[in-house]
């Protein structure tokens, strides 16, 4: 059984692009040698604005169990208000990591000792020239910095591939600037 799987849960709102963000990371992970990549959105009533989540599993081997993940190693939250609506730390493994799009410092959050990283992606993405509320590429920079899983160069290429013809540079700049401005809290 393949037990060497890194499990990442993405929380966003319907229409916010959490699935696209997870897909970009999936592509970058695959290019980085993780040949087993599975991204499974959880479906039901994904009306715009409602909290949604997506599972991303990455591994060096093929993944056979496609079930939604229940015990993630990391959680990425595209909208800090979701923290008040959804138990984003639910099932998170001990010592797990929560990455939040928030202007607040990681120490302002308390998830029972889980490691927290924050970046003000909403602000940075706006500065990069993206329309207000487009945070799904910026958050990838925070993910890269806090997780250290995939290098920023590979992620930048994956972002620009995904947004070919749709402001690729603005999207990748949002990610790179977010990377530089992500604060990783202590445990």
């Amino acid at each position: 059984m393949n037990q060497d799987i890194i499990k990442i849960r993405w929380h966003g709102r319907g229409g916010q692009g959490a699935i696209t963000a997870a897909k970009i990371v999936a592509n970058a992970a695959f290019v980085s040698g993780y040949t087993g990549v599975v991204m499974a959105p959880t479906f039901g009533t994904e009306r715009r604005g409602a909290p949604v989540l997506t599972s991303l599993q990455i591994s060096k081997q093929k993944i056979y169990d496609l079930s939604p993940i229940t015990q993630p190693d990391m959680v990425v939250v595209l909208d800090h208000l979701i923290v008040e609506e959804v138990d984003v730390a639910g099932g998170l493994k001990p010592g797990g990591l929560i990455i939040i799009n928030s202007s607040r410092h990681p120490d302002d959050f308390d998830f029972n000792g889980m490691k927290v990283a924050t970046a003000d992606v909403t602000h940075i993405a706006g500065e990069a020239g993206l329309p207000t509320g487009i945070v799904n590429t910026g958050i990838i920079g925070a993910f890269a910095k806090a997780s250290g899983l995939i290098d920023m160069e590979t992620l930048t290429r994956a972002i620009e591939d995904e947004f070919k013809g749709k402001h690729p540079e603005k999207n990748s700049r949002a990610a790179r600037v977010t990377f530089e401005n992500t604060i990783v809290g202590g445990n």
């Binding site: 897909k23 990549v37 599975v38 991204m39 499974a40």
Partner: peptide, 10 residues
């Protein structure tokens, strides 16, 4: 449906 149709993999 969903398990394969909407799941992404290489």
């Amino acid at each position: 449906g969903y398990i394969l149709s909407h799941t992404y993999m290489p």
